[in-house]
């Protein structure tokens, strides 16, 4: 019971970390980036191809992250150029289209089949009453907390953080105030691309590693971010880890195991119905 639940910790950490990236993007540039993990998968596969050609793992991973950053920056540039001052719904729709396009390009470049990835971080990190916690799990959970904390501090205490908040909430006003909003937008996209590649590279060896499956990591990541309604980092981390733990827990049950990805949706459904029960109005007057 404990073992299988802890087995979900790696997944949960990944969902949390990717979810935090989504919240980061939403709070900094006002976009729910459906294409986040497709970008990360692209970067990961670039790293894989390089590694296959004999490039050392670390170098390959760095180039992969750079590739993820570059692709993401390109998408960010499209957003900043043609979709600068539009509502979140249009942003999301564009990101969905980008995700579909990236997936198709990824299939073309890398094929549909799974690939084996080097599991660099291996083995148990600790043992809790007979159940092991893997190194990967520790690293991704720590990463999610670190990214969340860093972003939170950045947004609250630094000038650039304040500017980014202005960009996400009132893009045109921010620009009129002389904030270099569009370059900042592209930079945030690039950062998110690099981060998501790094996370996907870390967790890919622990799960189905075909291009589609890695890209669809965005679904549980979005679910985690939704627990925090795209604003709260803490709730997102908790949501991501929670989803992972539930997934791990039900793998014990033969009847429920096939539905391990369904339960999180049900849980989120409940959480949302409760947390959003108050009536609220759309954009002020």
């Amino acid at each position: 019971m404990l073992q299988s639940s802890l087995a979900g910790l790696t997944s949960g950490g990944a969902y949390a970390a990717l979810g935090v990236c989504l919240v980061l993007m939403y709070r900094m540039v006002g976009v729910v980036n459906f294409a986040l993990t497709a970008t990360g998968a692209f970067g990961t596969y670039v790293a894989l191809v390089l590694w296959g050609h004999g490039v050392p793992y670390v170098a390959a991973a760095l180039v992969g992250a750079a590739a993820g950053a570059a692709i993401s920056a390109l998408l960010g540039a499209v957003m900043a150029t043609w979709f600068y001052d539009v509502g979140p719904e249009v942003h999301a729709s564009v990101a969905i289209a980008m995700m579909i396009g990236l997936l198709a390009l990824g299939f073309q470049a890398f094929g549909h089949g799974p690939r084996s990835l080097p599991a660099v971080l291996q083995g148990p990190a600790a043992t809790v009453s007979g159940a092991t916690i893997t190194v990967v799990a520790v690293v991704v959970v720590a990463a999610s907390v670190a990214i969340a904390l860093a972003t939170w501090v950045l947004l609250r205490t630094t000038t650039i953080g304040v500017r980014l908040r202005a960009v996400s909430e009132r893009p045109v006003t921010a620009e009129l105030l002389g904030i270099p909003a569009r370059p900042l937008t592209v930079a945030v996209w690039a950062l998110a691309g690099a981060l998501s590649t790094a996370i996907v590279v870390l967790v890919a060896p622990t799960r189905p590693s075909d291009f589609l499956s890695l890209s669809l990591l965005v679904v549980p990541a979005l679910a985690a971010a939704l627990v925090g309604v795209f604003t709260s980092f803490g709730a997102t981390v908790a949501g991501g880890i929670g989803i992972g733990l539930i997934e791990g827990l039900v793998t014990d049950s033969d009847a429920l195991a096939p539905y391990s990805t369904v339960l999180p949706v049900v849980v989120i459904f409940m959480v949302l119905l409760w947390s959003q029960r108050r009536e609220r109005w759309d954009v002020t007057r």
Binding site: V32, G87, I96, L222, A225, V265, L273
Partner: peptide, 29 residues
């Protein structure tokens, strides 16, 4: 659509994507 009562556009989109993934899993099984 129940969450649609309180969720604004984007959040709702995210939720429906979760539904799409969940239904696909259920059907596969």
């Amino acid at each position: 659509g129940l969450p649609a009562l309180r969720l604004r556009g984007v959040n709702l989109a995210v939720f429906t994507l979760g539904v799409a993934a969940a239904v696909s899993t259920v059907l596969a099984t």
